[in-house]
């Protein structure tokens, strides 16, 4: 434990003296400013999202058009959803949405008293309070900024140590592999959690399940720190490492599309760890009553597995006889 604490202190000092840490601090301020002052609380300039023919339809964003052909034209050109009522039949005109998405959409928009409504709606939970538009982005910022701090910073510290040659000195000390991996993981679990909490407090406030938030962030930060180290051990310097992690970074951000456009949800995207983390943050900050036990359990298993893989890779590629001396 003494070794881990010594390594932790040293990594913390190195982190504070790294310019990127201060970049992250500035980023935190910018994110908070963006959420509060640059993104509106309500969506303004609400554009037409629904073209309707043959029926009255209440609500904003609806354009009643003169013919079914006009509906089709608007769907094609503006990407809106169209509803055509003709001869007692209701037709939904869309540009490639899934059947489930169309059904859900229709179920949501049709007033219950509409005699044409073919769908019975049963609500399993109370409808949640609408989330202000600007706060919808907070889970994205947390999942793709705060939680992945360790992915980058641990790798940067590790590659810095490699370039300075201090890993050779560490190798001939009683330090060992496990304290080395544990200290960096622990440091960025703490840093990631503090970062995420500050972001959440400064934007959403204090009314959310803080313990669930902390558990998710600690697990997520541990996992991404370990993942970052697993990747970094294959590189000699920061430049070559950075080129390689950009595609990984992009892949990790794909779930953001599913979050913004729920209809984009292919099964493979759920395997990306940030997917479950992102939706879990959304659930914690804006609860709808879903259980997060499965997310926490899966992330725990992934983190434990990542720790063993990372320790093995660090031992083999970084602190082994062959890995240390170039």
């Amino acid at each position: 434990m003494n070794r881990v604490m010594s390594l932790l202190r040293q990594d913390f000092k190195l982190l504070l003296r790294n310019a990127l840490f201060w970049v992250l601090t500035v980023a935190l301020v910018l994110i908070v400013v963006t959420v509060w002052y640059l993104i509106p609380r309500e969506q303004t300039g609400f554009e037409t999202r629904l073209a309707v023919y043959g029926m009255e339809f209440p609500g904003g964003g609806v354009e009643i058009v003169a013919s079914p052909g006009k509906v089709e034209q608007m769907v094609r050109e503006k990407g809106v959803l169209g509803i055509v009522r003709e001869d007692g039949a209701l037709t939904v005109v869309h540009d490639g949405l899934s059947k489930q998405a169309v059904t859900a959409f229709v179920a949501q928009i049709m007033p219950p008293q509409t005699p044409l409504s073919p769908i019975q709606i049963e609500r399993l939970r109370e409808a949640p309070q609408p989330v202000p538009y600007n706060l919808r982005f907070v889970p994205i910022f947390i999942a793709f900024e705060a939680v992945i701090v360790g992915f980058f910073m641990a790798a940067i510290l590790m590659l810095g140590e490699r370039q300075e040659g201090v890993l050779e000195a560490y190798r001939v000390s009683p330090g060992g592999v496990v304290p080395y991996v544990a200290s960096k993981s622990l440091l960025f679990a703490i840093v990631g959690t503090v970062y995420a909490l500050l972001m959440a407090f400064a934007t959403v406030g204090f009314v959310f399940n803080i313990w669930q938030f902390i558990i998710l962030t600690v697990l997520g930060s541990l996992f991404y720190t370990l993942l970052g180290m697993c990747v970094a051990v294959f590189f000699e310097d920061i430049s070559s490492w950075f080129l390689a992690v950009v595609p990984l970074w992009a892949l990790n951000m794909l779930p953001m599309i599913s979050f913004s456009v729920p209809t984009f949800s292919p099964p493979w995207i759920e395997w990306i760890p940030s997917y479950s983390a992102l939706f879990a943050y959304d659930e914690i900050l804006f609860p709808t009553g879903k259980s997060l036990l499965s997310v926490h359990s899966l992330l725990s298993v992934e983190t434990i597995a990542a720790f063993f893989v990372c320790a093995a890779l660090v031992k083999r590629r970084l602190l082994s006889a062959r890995g240390c001396v170039s």
Binding site: K13, G165, V166
Partner: peptide, 25 residues
């Protein structure tokens, strides 16, 4: 072990370098 090429943490002070390694023993 003292190496031919001095390999210390350049961002840590001399004292911090020694304190860190002392903590490993």
């Amino acid at each position: 072990v003292s190496f031919e090429q001095p390999n210390v943490y350049l961002r840590l002070t001399g004292l911090e370098n020694l304190e860190h390694f002392a903590g490993l023993f």
